[in-house]
Design a protein around this nucleic acid. Structure first.
Lengths: 189, 189
DNA sequence: CGAAGCATGTAAGGTGTTACATGATTCT
DNA sequence: AGAATCATGTAACACCTTACATGCTTCG
């Protein structure tokens, strides 16, 4: 139930409307905790019912600005300091496929790993320029956004290096036992 | 819809019952694609309806052994070779908290990162001994299970190193502006 | 006035989790 | 005989995604 805490965290920094929050999810939190419009509005309603946030102002087009309450702050701090985050990367489609790499032709397996290395490299290129942008933002977001960004960079580099290494491992296997592979086989439909 | 492909992948290696598959999910796939009993039995039913697997044998206690069909093999290969895996680590509770680290006292933020470093270290210690176990397994699982295991080791090391670095960054901030922190504040209930 | 952007909400469908429920076989 | 293990299935609930639906306000 962490969308709840994501919203509390954002409202802990400053009051905002559902629309405002949605923009934040579209930018800074997109890679960490994506959320859709339906989800945000629904959860804001539940948070208000639970007394963790309250409508602090109403604007033009039915705009409702929410602010965190004392109870909400307490819940946020409790979550931050007294509960352990669940395991990271619980599911990885990428790794799932690795387990089945023996069921396609070795050249295809190699291509797969090569592609993963490329994706890592591309991601680095996409994230690197953000470093300067984040550094120009003020206070908290600058400091802590930078930490998160750095995690992304390190992760992508790890991914790339691992995939390149794995590709070489596959090459070794190909040399060991050449030609014990299933047929190409096209898919109908 | 990747539980479907996980099952196809396992059945691609050898026929098995729901019970057998569940054991595999409990062991080798636990960290990559966890699945519960309800899920597995339900999905096997759907796969059979779709003609991607079929009951190949029936045993004692109502045991039904499933085997992959030609259509299932085609679908598996299609998934493996022609579709891109979705983004890894889409949601990370761990990183979500990082964004809100400015809302707790700096010492608490430090403690959080320190804890993340420890978790990385612990995970390495837990995975390292498996390396030898995996190497003794036969064929495919040995080769490709090792790749996945290595990913886990690299990931955990990255996590640990990042957290240690981040902890130092926070320390720098503490020295810069001492004492601009919210109160401790206990949580009722 | 028309387009773009602001702003909120509901409904349907898929996936995942937890708990409940049942019964057969093997081993000691 | 009783315990452990094998083996399958259903139901309720929470969460996420996609799509549908509506209307106001600002700007050119």
């Amino acid at each position: 139930m962490s969308l709840r805490h994501a919203l509390l965290g954002l409202l802990g920094q400053s009051p905002a409307s559902g629309y405002d929050l949605l923009k934040t999810f579209g930018i800074s939190l997109a890679n960490v905790w994506p959320a859709t419009q339906s989800q945000v509005y629904a959860e804001l309603g539940r948070l208000a019912d639970a007394g963790l946030v309250e409508v602090s102002a109403e604007g033009p087009r039915g705009r409702k600005e929410y602010a965190i309450t004392e109870a909400g702050l307490a819940e946020l701090r409790h979550w931050m300091t007294e509960t352990d985050p669940g395991p990271i990367a619980r599911r990885s489609e990428m790794l799932l496929r690795v387990f089945f790499l023996g069921q396609i032709r070795p050249e295809q397996a190699r291509a797969y790993l090569r592609r993963q290395a490329e994706l890592g490299e591309e991601r680095i290129k996409k994230l690197a320029p953000l470093k300067e942008v984040v550094e120009k933002m003020d206070d908290d977001l600058s400091v802590y956004g930078r930490l998160a960004l750095d995690w992304g960079l390190r992760f992508s580099a790890m991914q790339r290096d691992w995939a390149l290494w794995a590709e070489k491992e596959i090459e070794k296997e190909i040399e060991k036992k050449p030609g014990s592979a299933p047929e190409p086989e096209a898919r109908p439909e």
